[in-house]
Amino acid sequence: MRTILFFCLSLILIFTSAPMSSFAYSYGDPNEEAVAEAYKEMVAKVQEKKFDEVKVIYETVQKEIDMHMGPEPSTIILEAIENKDADTIVSAMQKVLVLNVARRLENVEKNFDHYDTSKRLLAKAFATYKALSPIVQQKDAELDKKLKQQFDVALQSLGNPGLFGVGKKESNIDQFKESKKTILQALQDQFELEDVETGHFTEEDLDRLAAAKKKEWTDLSDLKNWIPIIVIIGVIIAVVVYAIRKRK
């Protein structure tokens, strides 16, 4: 009894005395960006003319967009959804994605010395670009190739702290700034933005960076979403039937 008490007490003591600061969320794909995923789903639903669903999907990322890019994008996009204006929805979301690339790259620069953070932020920037890549490719295939290459150069420029001296590589901030400038300039021209250097990007971004919040919206018309629950219930029924038969 005393040992159990000791065990519980030490647990309580340790978990209450020193609150841990945030770790990067370990779950969720580092190569996936919520805003970019929402964009892809929205484009699909716009084509099906299901504007109610477009709105539901947008609302899952609205808070993040408002926080980092100000209220303007949401005003434009929600109004376009209301008017069922497909072109404005898509083009406004593309601008949001460009701003998102800018925001992620900006924060890579601010956290340049924190390899683990900067690497993940850069992956998020690249994931965002990948959603835009087909459009860039259509207009200028050469540019698309060049931009992808610039993301690789940017990744190289972060260096690598290595492990116990193995695989250590120095970082190069000048090279990173160069890549960032090339990428943002090209995107600004391609998607006709007046300015990508908005002042809305906040530091708060950092602990959210890999926050793979489970999505709140699900597409019930998609058969894929039904498979897990069918399998789980199927297995339970199979075992129950087996047990009942066995007992007889």
Binding site: P19, M20, S21, S22, F23, Y25, Y27, G28, D29, E32, D207, R208, A211, A212, K214, K215, E216, W217, T218, L220, D222, K224, N225, W226, I227, P228, I229
Partner: peptide
């Protein structure tokens, strides 16, 4: 199961059955 859903390898018909984050969040974040 949760990780497979986070990674979108498998889907879900109901992503949140309930939310008791107010009681005890599952992560410091």
């Amino acid at each position: 199961v949760s990780m497979l859903q986070d990674l979108k390898i498998i889907g879900s018909v109901m992503p949140h059955v309930y939310d008791i984050t107010w009681f005890m969040p599952e992560h410091p974040i």
